[in-house]
Design a binder for these strands. Structure first.
Lengths: 138, 138
DNA sequence: ATCATATGTATGTCCATGCAATCACTGTCT
DNA sequence: AGACAGTGATTGCATGGACATACATATGAT
């Protein structure tokens, strides 16, 4: 049974290495962190390129407060803006700006390339052929 | 090509969920964090249950300063002690204490069980059958 | 032996995240 | 209408990690 732990350890180390590499690429070449990049990506695919904090949080599997701060970050860099929700005054939309969109679009190819390269480098392209049960968030 | 990113995203989310679950289990039931647990585990398998900071860091894929602080933590909880290196006075050994060892031993079965359960819950036991190229650390 | 450089560890500072408490608003029940 | 439980977001605080730097010791060249 202990080999299971071993394998798991190996797996997460590989995953961590790859994530780190992706993060480095994005940061160095586009000045965006990994989670910021993912937030932009999610926003760009949402209707009207906007989402409320909670929704964004649940997509990113981050908690609300982290997202609140991330959005603050994105906003500081001009990549998104906040927009008050007309029907529910508690709500806040995070909206992708043009700058945000173009930043995303220029980063995307490098991200994909880095991912492909990193997977290959670790000899684990097959990881992506795993199909999950897609268990819901806890 | 974008599906590759999608799949990768799914993968890391599943991995993150599982890691979080493992961490919670360890923290709640044994008062040890996930990386602390892994450090104990690595120490316990090392000759004389001791390692120098750098070695520990490289096993854990953490940088040296993080390990320095982690060891401080472990030491504060009485799970390890520092021991000066006789032949190289710059060096410091981190040595597992009896308390550390028994803590590890009591945590281990729960860890393994939690891992098995989490893998099953996400329907991805097959993840562990991936064989990696075991690329070295960057 | 001396000095320059490399190595091992620790410390200062910053950043991202989580949790708990809070603020602001909503909707419901009476 | 008024009270109040619930919901969305923000804020205070703590933690763990990274990077740069400091400090002590070791090693190697002259």
């Amino acid at each position: 049974m202990a080999e299971k732990s071993e394998l798991w350890l190996k797996l997460i180390q590989v995953v961590a290495n790859i994530e780190a590499e992706l993060g480095r690429t994005l940061q160095e070449q586009h000045g965006v962190g990994l989670s910021d990049y993912r937030a932009l990506q999610i926003l760009s695919r949402s209707p009207d390129s906007e989402l409320r904090m909670q929704e964004l949080a649940s997509y990113l599997r981050l908690n609300q407060s982290s997202v609140s701060r991330m959005v603050e970050r994105l906003e500081r860099h001009g990549l998104t803006i906040r927009d008050l929700c007309p029907d529910d005054k508690r709500g806040v939309y995070t909206v992708l700006t043009d700058k945000g969109r173009s930043r995303l679009e220029s980063a995307q190819p490098d991200y994909e390339a880095a991912l492909t390269a990193a997977l290959k480098e670790h000899g684990c392209e097959e990881l992506l052929s795993t199909k999950f049960g897609t268990a819901e968030t806890k």
